[in-house]
Design a binder for these strands. Sequence first.
DNA 1: ACGCCGCATTAACCTGGGTTATCAGGGCTA
DNA 2: TAGCCCTGATAACCCAGGTTAATGCGGCGT
Lengths: 247, 247
Amino acid sequence: MESPLIRKLRQFIPLTPGEKAALGRIGGHVQPARPNDVLLDQGRGTGVAVLLHSGWAIRHRTLRDGRRQIIDFVLPGDLCDPSCYFQRQADCAVSAITDGTYSLVRASEILDLIAASPRLGAFFWWLDAQEGQYLRAHLVAVGRLTAYERIAYLVWELWTRLRAVGLVEQNTFLLPANQALIADATGLSHVHVSRTLSRMAREKLLRRLDRRYQILDPARFRQIAQVEDITVSRRLPEAVAARLKRY
Amino acid sequence: MESPLIRKLRQFIPLTPGEKAALGRIGGHVQPARPNDVLLDQGRGTGVAVLLHSGWAIRHRTLRDGRRQIIDFVLPGDLCDPSCYFQRQADCAVSAITDGTYSLVRASEILDLIAASPRLGAFFWWLDAQEGQYLRAHLVAVGRLTAYERIAYLVWELWTRLRAVGLVEQNTFLLPANQALIADATGLSHVHVSRTLSRMAREKLLRRLDRRYQILDPARFRQIAQVEDITVSRRLPEAVAARLKRY
DNA sequence: ACGCCGCATTAACCTGGGTTATCAGGGCTA
DNA sequence: TAGCCCTGATAACCCAGGTTAATGCGGCGT
């Protein structure tokens, strides 16, 4: 069984046999996970990352009173998150939301890898940077989009990421999360998630069957989610300058 | 004039003369900035980061209709953001909000540095990881805290970061931002920011004079902002530091 | 000395989305 | 076949925070 890391990295650069061997060595001890299993606890000073072989997980933070924010979804093959090596304590918990398999990767393993191969170091950094991009987009969505736009953004993000790993067919994908999870990811209540998803179905934007989602109109979806503005970017238009003057 | 990068990095490890020389070489061409100057444009495919020598800046993203989210504040000495090297286009703009000086650092400069010295690579990654922590905390705040808590969090974050660079005295610091900026950072309206800051003054949590903020009750502030739940230690773990020394 | 502008404050009003609660399927176990 | 639990839909009500607008003030240019 090939390591998910090798599978991921070699999409981008050819790996030397030495690098492959080194990569293959990390992420041993594959363990099974069940929904709601905590793979990595918030506040634990472990210096480990989670390599998710299969299944879905979430990275989330929970306040004492129970309010919870999902930072991001962890998809099969993701390493979450390599930069935790530089922290004393995990600042988020990672929990499985489906059945799956994972392994824990210790800081030292990756740091040795970086020392041995700077370009692998850069590569892990790059993976981390990608995550940063999604994170910033997520922040914009939660901070400045309406509920309708926000959910459109979430669906669009997942669609995009799942497509990249071959888990989308006919614009349809599985999102194994109940509406309470979607609420925690978007900063909404589960009731309003339900309202909003129903509205999207009514408006023929989205079709749902259990937890399979089909995007019926990708172009309108992008537009509603303001994807252009959120993920890539554009110049500052006149209208914006005018508006900013009002402040 | 010593480069801000050298000043920052040598707090953590002794630098070799070669490393110092290499670090000194990047971030030349120091330029002046004025409030509202765009140091780096959203969507530009430049692969450059901003090294802020003095003054304050913001990293932000603006939607077509003028809604804007501030991703974070860039303080004097910050490199914002090194991971942009891995992007084709900047996903955020960086704008000055005070007078200051900065230089643009090209991707190639940092990448060469990483190749020459893996441990410098690890350090840049670490800087980036810290930013990631603040970003995740910011997301939790915007997604799940009330306006009151959110503003408490922002003030606390800035207080903490400014203290680390010696810009806090008697729990007092300068926040050179108008309330519209604070609103864009917290996902609120500027009216509500005003209301909330007034409330904090009324409750003897915060004193304001122009844009100088004094935290009157740090303990209660931490509690309101739910800092314990939101953030964790930001120091480099011993184990990592030790390992990097060996490189 | 005047007018302008940016900014903070405050009031009045409104609404998007939260809260609470009920009901209606499945899917599971027994 | 009944009893649960998990989940989603929907309704009724509520409120935190948005919107709009007016006021006041201090700094600045002329």
